[in-house]
């Protein structure tokens, strides 16, 4: 399969008055056509920042400090802001932001808000634009008369569908979904997950699915990248992470053990002691070593590289051996 997106040595640093926060520190991965790649980690691990970096729109005082992003054969690195806006953002890669459903303006109808986005990017007759809006509303499982409604008339699930429809509008190849199911009820969550699976098949899309929840990731992602303190610590296929043998990195293992399972009777849930490190002064060596039960001297001194332990399965841990 071809790669639709390749990221090499991407760095995004926040230049704060207290110092440089390396929120995304030298990460590399690729996304295949028609694939969903999950990005998981605790809050503050840099997963949302990675999403913003892929759109080349870091939140100030953040700046992209290096790396190369190639999407659909186009190298984004040298592109200027207006080129990004015209040719890349929403045309090639779009994002469903965290809490996107709450960003709809309460005073305009859904139709007007969607029309605005569309006309900003495309010269289009009103009638044609209306048809396209209706087509995309239907695609996400809403009826066309939704355009006359105001946001307060819609449920959370409906608003999330609108946010997804808006991201699809200009027919991008890659969609980044940042916690698209987090604020929703379980049943609505399941419906949105089904919708994303359905869209992926119908439109041949590729997704980057950002969440803190390994359980949701198991449902949607073909491959999973686990982030810790700005670094990718493990990447593997769904089977490699959730299968019998399980993940290799102690952090992934702990995170998986802390994820509650409905159908397993457990008397004690495990948890990861301590808190994620302050990225102003990340720990030496492996960034996870202060919280790791398996840490040895080497872990404190030398940073482990991301190495392949079996096909498609990469881990950054001194304790992991080839499978």
């Amino acid at each position: 399969m071809d790669n639709i997106l390749t990221v090499d040595n991407l760095k995004l640093y926040y230049y704060t008055s207290k110092g440089v926060v390396k929120a995304v520190d030298d990460i590399s991965f690729s996304l295949k056509k028609g694939e969903t790649l999950g990005l998981v980690g605790e809050s503050g691990c840099g997963k949302t920042t990675t999403g913003f970096a892929l759109l080349k729109m870091p939140t100030p005082p953040g700046k992209i400090a290096g790396g190369k992003i190639v999407i659909d054969g186009i190298d984004m690195t040298p592109l200027r802001e207006n080129e990004m806006r015209r040719n890349i953002r929403w045309e090639k890669i779009s994002m469903v932001f965290q809490g996107a459903m709450n960003t709809l303006t309460p005073v305009y109808t859904i139709g007007k808000q969607m029309m605005e986005t569309l006309q900003e990017h495309r010269e289009m007759e009103r009638e044609e634009a209306r048809k396209r809006i209706e087509k995309y509303l239907n695609l996400v499982g809403l009826s066309g008369d939704m355009v006359k409604r105001y946001p307060h008339e819609l449920s959370g699930g409906m608003k999330q569908r609108i946010a997804i429809a808006t991201a699809l509008f200009l027919e991008p190849k890659v969609i980044i979904c940042d916690e698209p199911t987090t604020a929703l009820d379980v049943i609505v969550q399941a419906q949105i997950i089904n919708l994303l699976k359905d869209l992926k098949e119908k439109l041949d899309l590729s997704f980057i699915f950002i969440t803190h929840d390994l359980a949701t990731e198991a449902e949607v992602s073909d491959r999973i990248a686990v982030m810790y303190a700005g670094k990718i610590v493990e990447i593997g296929t769904n089977q490699q992470i959730y299968g019998e043998q399980g993940p290799c990195h102690p952090y992934t293992r702990n995170l998986l053990a802390a994820t509650p399972r409905l159908h397993a009777k457990v008397s004690e849930l495990s948890f990861i002691p301590g808190a994620p490190p302050d990225l102003l002064e990340p720990p030496s060596g492996c960034r996870f070593h202060p919280r790791c039960a398996l840490a040895m001297d080497k872990c404190r001194e030398e940073e482990p590289p991301l190495i392949e332990i079996e096909e498609e399965h990469m881990v950054a841990c001194w304790r992991c051996e080839k499978r």
């Binding site: 997950i193 359905d198 198991a218 769904n238 959730y242 409905l262």
Partner: peptide, 16 residues
């Protein structure tokens, strides 16, 4: 509707 961290559910619709 609850998601569980087990393999083999990707690309299959969830039945609720």
């Amino acid at each position: 509707a609850v998601c569980e961290p087990v393999a083999g559910k990707v690309n299959k619709p969830k039945v609720v």
